[in-house]
Design a protein around this nucleic acid. Structure first.
Lengths: 207, 207
DNA sequence: TGGGATACATGATGGGTGTCATGTAAAATT
DNA sequence: AATTTTACATGACACCCATCATGTATCCCA
């Protein structure tokens, strides 16, 4: 006899809010300090809970990290689409707007609020438990870039778009990573951003 | 009365060998598994010692990590120069040789033997104790790229070389990071490398 | 060759971490 | 209104880690 499971009605929403709060705080803390430097107690505390609430929501810290990467990158992809659409509405270059916002001093100086690919890509590549979320989230970024290219670069054949999206994303995240690695020399760091913006734009040219 | 300190003669070399062995093993282990996943005991064991030997050589684990980043990147810069010189001797493109070796499947699949900027750049950017080593090592890579550009791209004015070096390095490390993040989808990962190689070459064009 | 210096091994410690029980108060269903 | 369910807090456990003493065997210098 399997016991009948009665669903909840109101608290279900609160449960989901707790879950999403943990995901959001975890994503922010992970990007800001690294996955290994953030404990589950830090995450639950930032979400207004205690560490006892954790394992009712996630099977493990690594599983949370994978989901956090995926969700964070998917939201970034949505923001890219919105930004590009807004720029296009103003008659500006949608792709250039995305590049300029990504390869910027403010992004460089705010890892906790920035792209998970730059902040956690290397860490995720090492841990097999994180690879699925990181791969899936990165594909979301690429899909967004592909769509943005379709309207912002109508001269680019559709068959070329995936490769160009990869090249643009590589120049973008490489530029931010390089700028962060040069943190001790601010002028060089700024120059890295300027050079990477240009490289990303050039990568989007079709010839 | 300060006690007279007598220097050593022969063991000094063995001491230096132990030190460099720790540095080398630490660099490899850090790149392969991340700094926080590697303990002091792992490093000394890989160097044929025990953890007691550590603090006679380095003031802290973070100090070792900073020095390991710097040394690893400086050696990479030397290898780049040698590779470019060899290619130029064969009448080939020195810069292209460096790009092709860096943005390659073998580099992507061997983080422990690969570039510290890709593997540890994000981690180093977070920890103030690691920033000096990472910045200095990255400058060594850029200086090597600048020199390689001077002979492989004689059309590029000297004043433009630093910016171009930054753009090329951003495309290179961004490509490897992206390819690692896409580990779950091998065809996309390979495509990322191909696209990044092209982006790096394009970034080196002067116009 | 003898005496002092020291690099390394052993061991200890204090703190932190992921994960797993248990209890309880509140909510949801009948 | 009563009963069942359950999300969360508290607490505990086992483990790992960076760092710091202590001892000893070895090596350097006179």
């Amino acid at each position: 006899m399997t016991p009948i499971m009665y669903p909840m009605r109101v608290t279900r929403q609160l449960l989901a809010e707790h879950r999403v709060a943990m995901l959001r705080q975890a994503s922010r803390l992970f990007r800001a300090h690294g996955i290994d430097r953030v404990g589950v107690a830090d995450i639950t505390r930032a979400a207004g809970l205690t560490h006892g609430a954790f394992y009712g929501h996630f099977p493990s810290k690594a599983a949370l990290a994978s989901e956090a990467c995926d969700a964070s990158l998917a939201r970034a992809a949505d923001r890219w689409r919105a930004l590009a659409a807004e720029a296009a509405g103003n008659g500006e270059d949608g792709l250039g707007a995305v590049i300029d916002r990504y390869v910027s001093p403010s992004h460089r100086d705010d890892p906790g609020g920035g792209c998970a690919l730059v902040a956690l890509g290397a860490e995720a590549a090492r841990d097999p438990a994180l690879v699925p979320g990181m791969t899936s989230g990165t594909e979301a970024l690429l899909a967004a870039l592909d769509d943005i290219l379709a309207t912002a670069r109508p001269g680019v054949p559709a068959a070329e778009r995936p490769g160009i999206a990869l090249a643009v994303l590589a120049a973008m995240n490489g530029g931010v990573l390089l700028a962060r690695a040069l943190a001790d020399r601010p002028d060089r760091s700024d120059a890295a951003l300027t050079a990477a913006r240009r490289a990303a734009r050039r990568a989007a040219e079709f010839s």
